[in-house]
Amino acid sequence: MKDRSKKYMNPYLAGFFMGLIILASFYLTREGVGASGAFKGIWVSVVESVAPAHAHNSPFYAGYLKSHPHPLQSRLVLLVLGVLAGGFISGALMGRLKLKIEHSPKITSKTRIIAAIIGGILFGFGASLGRGCTSGSALTGMVSLSVAGFVATAVIFGTGYVLAYFVRKLWI
């Protein structure tokens, strides 16, 4: 059988579909797509059930619970569960379902995992401070022509380019 696992959709066609998906989201729910907000919702609900006193005394959790009384029944948590399902379906169709650590041959799996955790911490913190990540702030923000969206896109990619040289061993 021909190996489909390296076959990807034409990027412009994929982008066109992604644009239509964001439009559908705006049409149905007035908001676009987002990912980081789901993790926030999940964590707040964990704190609320494990340490309710802390959740109601800390300004961050209390503020979040005030605007989202049921953090797990939020739009973004369901959206990210959908992303998990959609990614799995596509991976299954393309023969890409495989447990593995993908990394450049120049680094070890251990280095890759450490870099992934550090990157995740920075992204989680940055998205909290910046009110959304690449999906919710940058991409959706540009579709709605918000200044926040264009600033987020320029600064995320700009910082990536500035730092790329220093961490090139991780990738090339």
Partner: peptide, 13 residues
Amino acid sequence: GAAIMGAGFIIGG
């Protein structure tokens, strides 16, 4: 926030 995300992107991929 976006600058921190950019660093996370290039380090974490």
